[in-house]
């Protein structure tokens, strides 16, 4: 009993040292995860078995991952949101959930890299956002060029233009030099 209390007290003490930037990252990840789950369950009864199970997985996994961003429980939370979204046949809903899941994943990834009580430099944030944008653009291009034709969805012609623009933007994001040099930036 005493050791349990001590471990809880230690956990609370550790959380007290977590920096604001860390909390901001973890909060953003938690919010986007909850939003993804709500979007996935939108239009479905919440008292069903699948939504209940996936919501529990999202809750437990998300809570553990928020407390320890370098844990592996985030996989359970993201899998819960993804499985919950499978009930939907609406592609925009699926895309929305996918983007929110990516945001959650990237926030946890950066939070795991930064020391718990440390500050986060601007260049670290821009670099992470830049690569997350690259992943989103690559996913957009692959979705428009491969997945939707595979699914037999009737895609208007402008989606091809959008896909090409996404590829061009991807190249631009990956190859255009940074605006901030390490010597100037603080």
């Amino acid at each position: 009993m005493r050791s349990t209390l001590e471990s809880i007290a230690q956990l609370l003490a550790d959380l007290g040292h977590v920096s604001r930037a860390q909390w901001a990252l973890r909060l953003l990840a938690a919010l986007s995860l909850v939003a993804a789950q709500l979007l996935a369950c939108a239009g479905h009864p919440l008292d069903g078995v699948l939504p209940a199970l996936t919501s529990a997985a999202v809750l437990v996994g998300g809570l553990v991952q928020t407390l320890r961003p370098d844990a592996s429980m985030g996989t359970l939370a993201l899998a819960g949101a993804v499985v919950a979204a499978c009930a939907s046949a609406d592609v925009p809903v699926l895309a929305g959930v996918a983007v929110l899941v990516l945001v959650t994943h990237v926030c946890w990834s950066l939070a795991a890299m930064v020391p718990a009580h440390g500050r986060i430099g601007r260049r670290a944030v821009t670099t992470t956002v830049r690569w997350a944008a690259a992943a989103a653009l690559l996913a957009l291009a692959a979705g428009l060029g491969v997945v939707l034709p595979l699914a037999g969805a009737s895609t208007p012609a402008w989606t091809m233009v959008l896909g090409i623009l996404a590829l061009i933007a991807l190249v631009a994001v990956l190859l255009v030099p940074h605006g901030t040099s390490p010597r100037r930036g603080r």
């Binding site: 499978c86 699926l94 690569w131 979705g143």
Partner: peptide, 23 residues
């Protein structure tokens, strides 16, 4: 899930994370 359900559109859900890992 997409293969088992026979619904290729479900791939959209995992594309961003797969793209992130591929990059």
């Amino acid at each position: 899930l997409a293969v088992m359900a026979g619904r290729p559109e479900l791939l959209v859900l995992g594309l961003p994370l797969l793209a992130w890992a591929v990059l």
